[in-house]
Nucleic acid binder design. Sequence first.
DNA 1: TTCTTCGGATGACATTTGTCACTTTCTTTT
DNA 2: AAAAGAAAGTGACAAATGTCATCCGAAGAA
Lengths: 207, 207
Amino acid sequence: MNILIVDDDKLVALSLKTILESTDRINVIAMGADGSDAITLFEEHKPDVLLMDIRMDKMTGLEAGEIILKKHPDAKILYLTTFSDDEYIVRALNMGAKGYILKQDFEGIAPALEAVMNGQSVFGEKIIEKLPVLINNKSRFDFSEHDINEKEQEIITLVAEGLSNKEIASELFLSEGTVRNYLSEILEKLELRDRTQLAIFYYTNVK
Amino acid sequence: MNILIVDDDKLVALSLKTILESTDRINVIAMGADGSDAITLFEEHKPDVLLMDIRMDKMTGLEAGEIILKKHPDAKILYLTTFSDDEYIVRALNMGAKGYILKQDFEGIAPALEAVMNGQSVFGEKIIEKLPVLINNKSRFDFSEHDINEKEQEIITLVAEGLSNKEIASELFLSEGTVRNYLSEILEKLELRDRTQLAIFYYTNVK
DNA sequence: TTCTTCGGATGACATTTGTCACTTTCTTTT
DNA sequence: AAAAGAAAGTGACAAATGTCATCCGAAGAA
């Protein structure tokens, strides 16, 4: 498997090369330092996978990627970056990049390359967590971190379905007063004012 | 790396096992045939990665995944499926699955598992192609079709931001009573009961 | 000029909601 | 057995909410 590495940080590029070449299936055929390098080196070597940084002088990895993909729609480009900017993720996805992983977990780059080689796409942990947000503005919320117990979660769900306290009570076989007490507790824990804000919270942060 | 395979098609499950065990780093510790198997076997073996089909009798892989992830948020679940249904992809992403790949390219499953093991997420080619569509497909609600005028829209927006009638009134330089009247009108038009349902409506249909 | 419409406002009313203090009952802990 | 917690409930209260009939003034339409 022939890889082209493009990164303006020589140190990063070199350590990547070292790591990747320690595996026997991967061969680094060339290295570049910016977007225009990426384009010329890609043309010259036709690597199986192009492993490229996003932020670079002269031409960013995204621009270079767009140009390369226009000419070679099957090019496999795997982005490598230090931060996870929403804009970048969307743009990379739209152009048809094969993945977007964070430099920080570079021990995992070799298998990621293997997967890309097999036609799959790979995303780093931090990246994938953002996808639900991008898709429908929903992110996952960890109830346990806010001391929200099982029963409270049920109530939150029902509030988010638009039920009244009375309806929730009969749904859960509790008295209306109890539901009110629970809800009051929930609102305090989440620092919200009323059930509407809770529903909003649910739809913007949970699920 | 210990893997749990769950698929109701014995043949598929067996060939997966064979393929995966031909690599030296992967060890299949157990196999199940439906969602409830997945849950019990997961509890019993605590596999590094759970490789699971989506469509199964009794309990689907998605339901099982949700249950497992509720108890073990760090569980690594990789879905394996024959088709690429939008609904499923979104649901899998929302729950926090580590990937979603098509059975058809099962030669690539081993590296996908490696990548997942390294904390990354892997998606099949056909799957990732759908993501941009999903991201840009935020359904938009056509207010004009429901006779919702300009002012009413403003109020809806503010309700969806969690403001009280009083706050909305001062925001819009109206009296609280007027806001109440408007809101009452809106609720009737949209056939909703209260502001919470309106907020929910907003977050599920608008934007 | 009247008539009508429309945006906005009032006031009154019944409900719903959120808060709080306190009780009961059952289960754990000590 | 006594103490300490949960889980659930009660009653009371203030505030917010939703509904309705009605009113007012300005802008158009007849």
